[in-house]
């Protein structure tokens, strides 16, 4: 159930990531990126974390809705594994962002709408983890976590995606009056690495979520066997 029947996506993830890691470091860069300089290469490593996180959390959101609709416990396990994987991606994005920011703007945490949105959002997902860990009864926990997940995902997207766009100024691309892809000169083709990077990283973390889900299913089956033995 939790096992994705298509094996090729794992191979695709590894190939795309291999391409991203190698060619992402070697590709010639646009010359007008300002203080970013060489660190614009983080576009292939830091940015896909956020894109992938949003995609994976959206999949988790859909599985939470499915769970409440048909009460299939497997759907809850998939939603949970995907959410944890998404949070892991978010943390990777957060820490790489802090490191990048420290070396570019001189501070790991600037007063940027995107950063503050993510801080609140990550706290909301910490709440999801707390529900998973603190409620003992299986079905009650599953329902509570699903309802909570359905509730927080749109809020999270609003916080990290919509609000920064409405903000007057942000140092992040694509929000307020800041730079984006189109403002750089085309001495290069960064999109050629950027889009494969997003697909590769996302599939890689889906793979991790799949392994988690299958482990949880086996654990659950063992517990059921013990109960009925």
């Amino acid at each position: 159930m939790a096992k994705i029947p298509y094996k090729w996506y794992k191979l695709l993830a590894v190939l795309l990531l291999g391409y991203t890691l190698i060619y992402g470091l070697l590709i010639p860069l646009p010359t007008d990126v300002g203080i970013l300089d060489e660190t614009i290469r983080n576009l292939f490593y830091h940015v896909p974390m956020w894109f992938g996180m949003m995609l994976i959390l959206m999949a988790a959101w859909i599985y939470s809705i499915l769970y409440l609709q048909n009460q299939n416990p497997n759907h809850e396990i998939i939603a949970r594994s995907l959410t944890y994987s998404g949070i892991l991606m978010g943390l990777c994005g957060l820490f790489t962002g802090m490191f990048w920011g420290y070396n570019t703007w001189g501070s790991p945490w600037t007063n940027d709408p995107k950063l503050n949105g993510v801080a609140v959002g990550m706290t909301m997902y910490a709440g999801y983890w707390l529900i998973q860990k603190s409620v003992n009864e299986g079905e009650k926990k599953a329902r509570l976590a699903s309802v909570y997940n359905i509730f927080i995902f749109p809020l999270f997207i609003a916080l990290i995606f919509v609000m920064p766009k409405l903000a007057k100024f942000s140092i992040h691309p694509g929000s307020g009056e800041s730079v984006n892809f189109k403002t750089y000169n085309k001495t290069n083709n960064m999109e050629m690495v950027f889009y494969p990077a997003i697909i590769g990283w996302t599939l890689f973390f889906v793979w991790i979520a799949e392994i988690t889900a299958r482990y949880e299913l086996i654990k659950q089956r063992k517990e059921n066997e013990k109960l009925f033995a």
Partner: peptide, 25 residues
């Protein structure tokens, strides 16, 4: 030279980093 050219590629040692990343991955 452009900053890109001066700092990053002159020594050619970037391939060492690429190699190490490949091994880890």
């Amino acid at each position: 030279p452009q900053p890109t050219e001066s700092l990053f590629r002159t020594s050619g040692k970037i391939f060492v980093v690429v190699g190490i990343l490949t091994i880890i991955f």
